[in-house]
Amino acid sequence: MIAARDLPLAPLDAAARFTAHILPSIRNDLASDCIILFDPADRPHAIWRRAMVEELAREAAPARINAIVGTAEDAIAATVEYLAKAPGVTGQIFELST
Score class of each variant (00 low, 15 high):
Met1Gly: 12
Met1Trp: 05
Ile2Lys: 07
Ile2Ser: 00
Ile2Asp: 00
Ile2Leu: 11
Ala3Ile: 01
Ala3Leu: 13
Ala4Asn: 10
Ala4His: 12
Ala4Thr: 07
Arg5Leu: 13
Arg5Ala: 06
Leu7Val: 07
Pro8Tyr: 04
Pro8Gln: 06
Pro8His: 05
Pro8Ser: 01
Pro8Ala: 06
Pro8Met: 07
Leu9Arg: 09
Ala10Phe: 02
Ala14Leu: 04
Ala15Leu: 08
Ala16Lys: 13
Ala16Gln: 14
Phe18Lys: 06
Thr19Phe: 00
Thr19Gly: 04
His21Phe: 11
His21Lys: 13
His21Pro: 00
His21Tyr: 05
Ile22His: 05
Leu23Asp: 08
Ser25Pro: 02
Ser25Leu: 11
Ile26His: 10
Ile26Tyr: 09
Arg27His: 07
Arg27Val: 05
Asp29Ile: 04
Asp29Ser: 15
Leu30Ser: 10
Ser32Ala: 13
Ser32Gly: 06
Asp33Thr: 08
Asp33His: 15
Asp33Ser: 12
Cys34Tyr: 04
Ile35Asn: 07
Ile35Ser: 05
Ile36Thr: 09
Leu37Asn: 02
Leu37Met: 14
Leu37Cys: 00
Phe38Trp: 10
Phe38Arg: 07
Phe38Gln: 08
Phe38Leu: 03
Asp39Ile: 10
Pro40Lys: 02
Ala41Lys: 04
Ala41Cys: 07
Ala41His: 06
Ala41Ile: 06
Ala41Val: 01
Ala41Asn: 07
Ala41Gln: 09
Asp42Lys: 03
Pro44Trp: 01
His45Cys: 03
Ala46Tyr: 09
Ala46His: 12
Ala46Cys: 04
Ile47Ser: 03
Ile47Met: 04
Trp48Ala: 02
Trp48Glu: 02
Arg49Ser: 01
Met52Glu: 14
Glu54Met: 10
Glu55Trp: 02
Glu55Thr: 13
Leu56Ile: 11
Ala57Asn: 09
Ala57Gln: 06
Arg58Val: 15
Arg58Ile: 14
Glu59Ala: 09
Ala60Pro: 03
Ala61Gln: 08
Ala61Val: 00
Ala61Arg: 12
Ala63Glu: 06
Ala63Gly: 03
Arg64Ala: 11
Arg64Lys: 06
Ile65Asn: 10
Ile65Lys: 05
Ile65Val: 15
Asn66His: 03
Ala67Asp: 11
Ile68Arg: 05
Ile68Pro: 11
Val69Ser: 01
Gly70Asn: 07
Gly70Ala: 09
Gly70Asp: 07
Gly70His: 05
Thr71Leu: 12
Asp74Cys: 01
Asp74Ser: 12
Asp74Gly: 00
Ala75Tyr: 03
Ile76Met: 10
Ala77Pro: 00
Ala78Leu: 14
Thr79Arg: 08
Val80Cys: 14
Val80Tyr: 11
Glu81Trp: 09
Glu81Tyr: 13
Glu81Ala: 15
Glu81Thr: 15
Tyr82Met: 12
Leu83Gly: 09
Leu83Phe: 14
Lys85Cys: 06
Lys85Trp: 03
Ala86Pro: 08
Pro87Gln: 02
Gly88Leu: 15
Gly88Tyr: 07
Val89Glu: 14
Val89Cys: 13
Gln92Tyr: 06
Ile93Gln: 03
Ile93Leu: 06
Ile93Pro: 05
Leu96Trp: 14
Leu96Lys: 03
Ser97Thr: 14
Ser97Pro: 04
Ser97Met: 04
Ser97His: 12
Ser97Asp: 15
Thr98Ile: 13
